[in-house]
Every structure is written in structure tokens, then in C-alpha cells.
Design a protein around this nucleic acid. Structure first.
Length: 342
DNA sequence: GACCCGTGGGC
DNA sequence: TGCCCAAGGGT
């Protein structure tokens, strides 16, 4: 019955009015929104909350204030500034993006959606966000906030992330995104989703869209968006090495592929270490400690072992003092373990 | 389409 | 505690 009677223009006006009064205007990346600052913030904000990103963004912009400084930076220093944010391919891609813009785009930051999406690490959402926030131009965005808001407002059923539902969501985004005031419009969508149309406790009582929201008028707000079926994550066991020498700790730089890619880490073993037999001495393997860590897609239970001999591995290894450790990008649970045991 | 890729906050 | 969720993208 009462399908939303709000035209795109009416929708835009309501959202812009709300954004002007109730939206966020003082986030660090909203100040001086250059393409580079918007790019950095949007990559950091992928799957990451605003309050988590803010200190990382400020530190990043201080160390890498422009594309050139990032493009020529050493990977280890880039990774150390991302340490703790997670999804480390974002950091590697951000450096690739800087090099791409300098080398392939003659230093001219791309401006169109079709060009923006070619930047490493930039997908459909981030391209739309850069168009909106950096250039104040047409750039549809569909992120977690918009998915939730649109699924409720338009009464879209089905699981977001499936091709059918996402197609419908992007279609709505393209239709309802204006050709002016794009910066405020996009910010309004995100802020509405973050502060009003929240997952668990939406503030429908103060929502300007309330009379036009299909989910609200049909009392289905908490049923939309359709929840994903939860799957059980597997348990994996890991083994790591703790080797100290002259007050230094041995670390290993991990491969770019896989978990904790390109971070420095305690050397990881393929299996539980066996007792090492040598001609003259028996070297005992001692358990230094344990830790557990839950990722998105599996749970890790790890044991850390000490021994005297250095295992040969294909990755670069290096001894670090406690002071040097602070300048490296280390996986968060590894960093915690080291600080506890060093 | 399925999987991979981190971490911290909120309840 | 355990679960959901967060300004997604790459393979």
C-alpha cells in the first residue's frame, strides 16, 4: 500500500535540511577536503568506525601530508602508521594509489567516477565518496549505512550483499543522488545511518523520514535489512618463535598475501616444534606463553615457543631492540604478547 | 558467488 | 562471553 511518495527532489531536500541542522560538520577530513585527504579518510573508514579512524588519520596526514610523500615512503613506515587499524592491504593499496596517480595520471588526481574506480583500493563506493566529498559532484554511495537506511525506507527485502539486493540498492542510490550539494547529501546519508537509522536502536521518533519510511509505517524497522545467516568460524592453531639475543628480539616480515600481510611478526612455524637433537647438546623447546585472537573468519589459538637455534625461513628476519619495536607495524595480538613478555 | 582480509566498540 | 557491526575491495 503506501509506497513511498517521496520524489528524489523531496528526498534530497529533507536530507539536506536535516544534515544542515543535525549532521556532522567537524570531522577532520571534512576540513579542507582535498582529493588526497578524502581518499585517505575513505580508505581508513572502510569497515572501520569513525572514532577509531580519527587518531590514525591525524597521524597519517602529519607524516604523509601529500601524495608525493606517500608515494616515496618506505613500506615499513607506511605499515607502522597503519598498525592496529586492520585490513592491511588497504595501506599497501594506498601507497600503490599514490604511485598510480603520480605515474599513470601525470600527477593529476582523477575526477570522474570511471577514472576514480581505477585507483588501487578504490571500488564503487569509494569512487562515489571521493566524487561527492572532494569534488562536490555526482557520486552515488552505497555503504553499510545506506544499505540499512534504503532497505528500511524503501522496504527492500533480501540480504544486502547479494547481487539482486545490491543492484536494487545502487539503482535507488543513482536515482536519488542529486547533481548539486553532493558533499552535504552524501554526508547526510552517512550521518542519518550512523545516528538515526541505527542497526539496533533506531531513533524513528525523531527521524524526518518517518512518515515516508516503508519499514516504519509497516512496523518492520527491526526486521530490515534482512539479517545474514551466521556461519560458524573455524578454529586454527598457530605456533610462533620467541628468540632473544643480546637484548634483541627476532622478528620476521610476513608475506604480502595472507593474514597480517607485510607486517613484522614473531617468526611463525608450520607446526608445533619438535625437540631438536644435536650431536653434543639436547636443546629443549620451552613454551613461552599463549594467546588467542578472533578474526572475522577464523579464531586463532597460538602458542609461543623459545629455543636456541634459529630456524631458517624464506622471509627476511631481523633482530630488534625494544625501542626499535615501536617503529614497526606489528599485528595487534603479537604486539600485546611481546609487550607482556619482553 | 564465495572467500579472504583486522580490530575495537557496544550491548 | 559472545555476537553484531563498522564510510568495502580484491581475488
Amino acid at each position: 500500500m503506501p509506497q513511498s511518495t517521496l520524489s528524489p527532489i523531496q528526498f534530497q531536500q529533507l536530507l539536506l535540511d536535516w544534515q544542515k541542522q543535525q549532521g556532522r560538520h567537524d570531522l577532520p577530513w571534512q576540513v579542507n577536503p582535498t582529493p588526497y585527504r578524502v581518499l585517505v579518510s575513505e580508505i581508513m573508514l572502510q569497515q572501520t568506525q569513525v572514532t577509531t579512524v580519527i587518531p590514525y588519520f591525524l597521524r597519517w596526514m602529519e607524516r604523509f601530508p601529500h601524495i608525493e610523500s606517500l608515494a616515496v615512503a618506505a613500506e615499513d613506515e607506511v605499515m607502522s602508521h597503519w598498525q592496529g587499524l586492520g585490513y592491511y592491504s588497504r595501506a599497501r593499496n594506498l601507497k600503490k594509489a599514490a604511485q598510480y596517480i603520480l605515474n599513470e595520471c601525470a600527477g593529476e588526481f582523477p575526477t570522474t567516477l570511471s577514472e576514480l574506480i581505477k585507483i588501487p583500493g578504490v571500488g564503487r563506493y569509494t569512487a562515489g565518496a571521493i566524487a561527492s566529498f572532494a569534488y562536490d559532484s555526482y557520486g552515488p554511495i552505497v555503504d553499510g549505512n545506506v544499505k540499512r537506511l534504503f532497505c528500511r525506507f524503501f522496504g527492500i527485502e533480501g540480504i544486502p550483499g547479494t547481487s539482486k539486493v545490491d543492484k536494487a540498492l545502487w539503482q535507488k542510490a543513482e536515482l536519488y543522488t542529486p547533481n548539486q550539494n553532493n558533499r552535504q547529501f552524501a554526508q547526510g546519508l552517512l550521518d542519518m545511518g550512523a545516528t538515526i537509522c541505527r542497526p539496533k536502536t533506531p531513533k524513528c521518533d525523531v527521524c524526518h523520514f518517518q512518515p515516508h519510511c516503508l519499514a516504519y509505517t509497516e512496523q518492520r524497522v527491526l526486521q530490515l535489512p534482512t539479517p545474514k545467516p551466521k556461519k560458524t568460524i573455524p578454529l586454527k592453531t598457530g605456533h610462533f618463535l620467541w628468540l632473544q639475543q643480546d637484548g634483541k628480539l627476532l622478528l620476521e616480515k610476513r608475506n604480502e598475501s595472507g593474514i597480517w600481510g607485510a607486517l613484522w611478526c614473531l617468526p611463525q612455524l608450520n607446526s608445533e616444534p619438535l625437540q631438536i637433537q644435536e650431536r653434543t647438546t639436547k636443546q629443549s623447546v620451552l613454551e613461552k606463553g599463549q594467546f588467542k585472537h578472533t578474526f572475522t573468519h577464523y579464531k586463532l589459538e597460538a602458542k609461543v615457543w623459545t629455543l636456541d637455534a634459529v630456524d631458517s625461513t624464506p622471509n627476511p628476519q631481523q633482530w630488534f631492540t625494544a625501542e626499535q619495536l615501536t617503529e614497526l607495524g606489528l599485528p595487534t595480538p603479537i604486539k600485546k604478547f611481546i609487550l607482556k613478555h619482553l
